[in-house]
């Protein structure tokens, strides 16, 4: 068995508030192979972005406690790295694409300058070489006039173009892993398709492993092979995309699927939603966190926490799976 590009073992994030601490992410493990796209889905506020930031080590160091047995990129553990040793990894071995391209880029520097700073930092080389690499990576995400884009400031581009430039920045050092945190949420449908196509192309081209953080299951179905369903800091279901969409086993997954709006001839009678709300960290119920909102709940669910049965192909953390 080959080494996965990204392997996360037993990652927990706790927020300290006064004397007690609350789990925002509670002991999750997963791995992504090279050239594979895995989605992390769930409602807003269930710990997806925190997971992504914790993998990169970008959470603030005061009031937040991150623990894991290991976070490996191509077999190398990065979880204990600090300071300049960690900065070496960021952008070179693992890169992140952020949700809002409008604010994620520095407004006072040209895109070329920002991308070349990343390349110069990690890969080095002469001025001309760096410029060449920047142009190449902008070209690779589909810009026909990469020189113009490199000379432009973020505010001169549209949201979709900025996100493409962000992808160019993420791929300029050809990292093994890219984490994309809701990369298309703020974009319109056709722009979203372009962004997803480019990500897909780069994934197959460079065999990059992609962790796509999303709450949009339609996007996930289009672009991922595997999917993990997250709720209240835990993984509830972990499987390949096809099985989830054909037969979701966890009631929460099934609930999420039922909420995807359908385009049909007739106007739908009602818009589906999962009743109730995601509880805030620290207010999780004692048993299965989803129990209070679950249509299939029984007494056992309120007492103990079901574990993710990882030995199965379609792993699920539920006492009464579908």
């Amino acid at each position: 068995m080959s080494t996965p590009a990204l392997a996360v073992h037993d990652l927990s994030v706790r927020f300290k508030t006064g004397a007690d601490s609350r789990h925002a992410v509670d002991g999750i493990s997963f791995s992504i192979d090279a050239g594979e796209a895995t989605a992390l889905v769930g409602e807003s506020g269930c710990g997806k972005t925190i997971t992504a930031l914790a993998i990169l080590g970008l959470l603030p160091d005061s009031g937040v406690h991150v623990e894991s047995s290991a976070i490996e990129i191509n077999g190398r553990d990065i979880s204990g790295l600090t300071g300049s040793r960690r900065r070496e990894v960021l952008g070179r071995d693992i890169a992140m694409i952020f949700q809002n391209p409008g604010t994620a880029l520095d407004p006072v520097f040209t895109l070329g300058r920002q991308i070349s700073a990343v390349y110069a930092r990690h890969c080095g080389g002469g001025k001309e070489h760096i410029r060449q690499k920047v142009i190449e990576s902008l070209e690779a995400v589909g810009f026909s006039q990469p020189q113009d884009i490199a000379a432009a400031y973020p505010h001169q581009l549209s949201g979709g173009m900025r996100q493409l430039a962000m992808i160019a920045m993420a791929t300029v050092c050809k990292p093994a892993v890219i984490i994309a945190d809701e990369p298309t949420t703020s974009l319109d449908n056709s722009t979203r398709a372009v962004i997803l196509q480019q990500l897909e192309r780069l994934r197959t081209l460079h065999q990059t492993a992609i962790l796509l953080v999303s709450h949009d299951l339609a996007t996930v179905r289009q672009s991922c092979q595997k999917v993990m369903v997250m709720y209240c800091g835990r993984l509830l279901e972990k499987t390949d995309c096809e099985s989830l969409f054909s037969h979701a086993r966890h009631p929460y997954s099934a609930g999420l699927l039922s909420c995807i709006p359908q385009i049909s001839d007739t106007r739908p009678a009602m818009i589906n939603s999962i009743p109730g709300q995601v509880p805030a960290a620290g207010e999780f119920p004692p048993g299965c966190h989803f129990a209070p909102r679950c249509p299939r709940v029984e007494s056992m669910c309120n007492q103990s926490v079901p574990a993710l049965d990882t030995d199965k192909q379609q792993a699920v953390a539920c006492f009464r799976p579908l």
Partner: peptide
């Protein structure tokens, strides 16, 4: 606390670069 500072951090910018390039110029 602006988003682009976190981006620069995610790409390995050192505290010096963050402060004296991104924060100060902005």
């Amino acid at each position: 606390e602006r988003d682009h500072i976190r981006t620069a951090q995610a790409y390995g910018a050192s505290p010096r670069e963050l402060l004296f390039r991104h924060v100060l110029k902005n």
